[in-house]
């Protein structure tokens, strides 16, 4: 067992103790953070590992949330089948949008994902017959997975924690797999990857779909938590928020998006109880994060940590190497 695995296990155990030391308000806040952290980790699959910055990721999150609500309350499906149906619809949307957005790369990709995301927003906002427009939709009762009641704050927290840990573990395995290596390869060296016989487009597309799938799972958690979904869930702000979490924490690291989710969710909750200007604050953090911490907090701190511990080993080889070369000459 290496150090990272021990740290991860320690983190999970600590998270497991949260309900014993906090009151309901903070337990709920932590559930919310878990949901957004999974959302950010899903986006990180394409932003951090695939180098594809999407500004429409709230679409899959929100389609799952709307989908499960609609299937359960309007179509009258059972809890499990509506959850599966909603995730299927969201993943399918990701597959279609992926085909379109991957016609372009770089910033055109970003622009197309934004436009596609706004169309989902338009449907949620304008197609009142389907989505009840600006009023949003209510999700009446949380499901009872395997017969457990998750209506209380603590029980729902453990439900979120289990979903979060399992999902992140699978995502981590994907990132570590040969597919993950291929994905990072398409980010850094797409031409070499093509020369090596990899289908770059296919790797990107599959990553895009996976990313949409996990965003949909996060969307389910979200609607189970809130019991309510509104067009804000699929808005550009929501997409920007999750992108900010990913970038602020550090794209391309597993823990970065989680750190970002903690910070952004806390700031949002704290700020919204004092000021109503959350959007301006979001924009300001965005600007500051990009200007002052382009690689994000986690890689930044890691570098700081290395700088603190590294200098002796970095300088000693140089010192020992110098006399030896002199000796050789």
């Amino acid at each position: 067992m290496n150090r990272n695995a021990i740290l991860a296990l320690l983190g999970v155990v600590l998270l497991g103790f949260v309900p014993f030391v906090m009151d309901d308000f903070f337990i709920n806040l932590t559930s919310q953070i878990l949901c957004y952290a999974l959302f950010a980790v899903s986006l990180n699959l394409i932003v951090g590992y695939g180098g594809m910055t999407s500004l429409g990721h709230a679409a899959y999150f929100g389609i799952a949330a709307y989908g499960v609500t609609w299937l359960h309350t309007v179509a009258g499906w059972g809890q499990l089948s509506s959850a599966i149906g909603a995730v299927a619809v969201a993943t399918f949307t990701a597959a279609v949008f992926g085909v379109l957005a991957l016609r372009a790369s770089g910033l055109s990709f970003l622009m197309i994902t934004l436009a596609l995301g706004q169309i989902v927003w338009g449907v949620a906002y304008r197609w009142v017959g389907l989505t009840q427009g600006d009023n949003g939709m209510r999700f009446p009762v949380r499901p009872e997975p395997l017969g457990f009641n998750i209506n209380g704050a603590t029980s729902f927290y453990y439900f979120s924690l289990i979903v979060f840990v399992v999902s992140v573990y699978i995502i981590w395995r994907v990132v570590q797999s040969p597919f993950g290596a291929g994905l990072r390869g398409t980010k850094d060296q797409p031409r070499r990857m093509r020369m090596l016989g990899h289908n770059v487009w296919m790797i990107r597309w599959v990553a895009f779909i996976m990313s949409g799938f996990w965003a949909a799972i996060a969307g389910l958690l979200f609607v189970y938590y809130q019991k309510f979904v509104s067009p804000y869930t699929v808005s550009l702000q929501q997409s920007a928020e999750v992108l900010l979490m990913t970038i602020l924490g550090g794209a391309g690291t597993l823990t970065g998006p989680m750190v970002g989710a903690v910070i952004v969710t806390l700031v949002k909750n704290v700020a919204s109880s004092y000021v109503e200007r959350w959007n301006a604050l979001l924009g300001l953090i965005f600007v500051l994060a990009v200007v002052f911490m382009p690689t994000g907090l986690v890689p930044g701190f890691r570098k700081l940590w290395k700088r603190r511990t590294a200098p002796p080993p970095a300088s000693t080889p140089a010192l020992t190497a110098k006399p030896s070369t002199e000796h050789a000459s």
């Binding site: 702000q237 301006a280 924009g283 965005f286 600007v287």
Partner: peptide, 12 residues
């Protein structure tokens, strides 16, 4: 980074 800054500015 520039795009993200313009997005942040638009929110502000």
């Amino acid at each position: 980074g520039q795009v993200l800054v313009t997005l942040g500015v638009s929110f502000i």
